[in-house]
Design a protein around this nucleic acid. Structure first.
Lengths: 101, 101
DNA sequence: AATATATATGAATATATGTTCTTTTATTGA
DNA sequence: TCAATAAAAGAACATATATTCATATATATT
């Protein structure tokens, strides 16, 4: 294709990232971490009003896939965005949405 | 949350859109339609080098979910982006990716 | 009307995802 | 060392998604 924005390898990567974040809870997590630098699992749980285990599954899923990083401090484990840039996808969606659906 | 970019209903919507497009073939379709205004199923098939039925499934999936629209002209059915704004998600990804993963 | 072409549709299937519940591991502090 | 707290990990399950194959529908052409 002439005007391709993304070449083939990058398309795969893009799809992978989108798939990883395409879930309401995970988007909220990204939003929270976009605003907070780092946050413990417990704090995230209570903000999202979501069970520990489920929250933890989502968090480690995103960590495994390279979106988040984590660091233990005492009893807590703090998660943060590996690249703040992901939040740009959210603001982008914010703009797109008015017109769509 | 204080600094929320997206409120709750919009988060759901955003997740829905992301989920809908989070697939290599579908991203390519969006890319193509971002560059072409409208294109027939057959043309899309051959550009993607993808089987008719699979292509059609992806296309109607995205149409059902409000990302694409379609219009028959003779034997062909032409698809187009319902909102060109979706392509912004791709360019956004393009920028994000250099740093991620 | 018969045929060819373009596309959609549906069933079948394999695979992936999301969620819940239970158990385990790590850390701290008594 | 024991109990408490924080989080991870794993099994089980339900649900969703992607793909293939076969068939149906719509249009155009003869």
């Amino acid at each position: 294709m002439e005007n391709m924005v993304l070449e083939s390898e990058k398309i795969e990567k893009a799809a992978f990232i989108l798939k990883t974040i395409a879930h309401p809870m995970r988007l909220r997590i990204i939003e929270i971490l976009g605003a907070h630098e780092k946050m413990s699992v417990g704090e995230i749980c209570s903000i999202l009003d979501c069970e520990q285990s489920l929250t933890s599954h989502h968090l480690s899923n995103m960590r495994l896939k390279g979106i988040l990083s984590s660091k233990r401090e005492g009893k807590n484990i703090f998660y943060s965005l590996k690249e703040k840039d992901v939040t740009k996808i959210l603001s982008c969606l914010e703009n797109c949405q008015c017109n769509m659906g």
